[in-house]
Design a protein around this nucleic acid. Sequence first.
DNA 1: GACCGTAATGTTATAATATTACATATCATA
DNA 2: TATGATATGTAATATTATAACATTACGGTC
Lengths: 134, 134
Amino acid sequence: MTLESSNLTKNQQTVLNILEKSTEPLKAYAILFDIQKKGIKSPLQVYRALDKLIEIGKVHKIESRNSYIACKHEGCNAKTSTAFLICEKCDNVTELKRNNLLSYFSKQAEKDNFQYRKHNLEIYGLCNNCKLKN
Amino acid sequence: MTLESSNLTKNQQTVLNILEKSTEPLKAYAILFDIQKKGIKSPLQVYRALDKLIEIGKVHKIESRNSYIACKHEGCNAKTSTAFLICEKCDNVTELKRNNLLSYFSKQAEKDNFQYRKHNLEIYGLCNNCKLKN
DNA sequence: GACCGTAATGTTATAATATTACATATCATA
DNA sequence: TATGATATGTAATATTATAACATTACGGTC
């Protein structure tokens, strides 16, 4: 299987389906409980599928929440770099897609003689919905 | 105890001391094992101290590594917002201190009608030392 | 098709990280 | 000295993630 192909294996496809259907990020064990009927029985099977999906850029991890989200952007640079808006009230997460972040961070890092490879940005606050409800 | 004071309790001070002496971020259980001689016996005591230290801005959590680092910056805005350079080779972590990140992210978030409160940025790559060794 | 190497799978056990629950103690201050 | 908020101690447990090992599937190539 080449890295860029969409030839996912059964377990990988099963996990991706769950994430794509979800309107919110999911935790690994939530995924596991959801799909125990589909032949996936152990945490490791989920984690392995997640690792692969992350590697090929189909899924990202929200580090501060230990949760996982399917990437909606085709052909973005998110294989390596990610940015999220995380609502602290409703836990909604949206992926920020601005390509200039990468070059901006790359320059910031260079100022400290640091060789940029990738980044993860998590912004916390209130989503539009929750702002209006207040 | 007021929030801005440096009146740390014994446990809090013990944990902070360990982190300040360390040249690298520490994990909660590493802290625990280090200080079991000083009266701290359970994970919870460490986590509670960490929570407080994070709340008052003395310590930050590196989310993607589940590790904790003492803040070297006096009076920075890091009570809420943080940015790190993380070396993938030697695991060295340095805190980025650029105040304009906050306003930059705040504006980025606004474009999506998102009300910014704080952020965490983790940049991965090679530190200067490791670059030179290659 | 037979062979080979790489990647994925299945399974059990366990490690690593973090929190709940509840009883008690400390401390500032009214 | 009574009160309320904060911190502590302790045991148990929940949550997140990986190690170890045996086996199977799959793609390329001879």
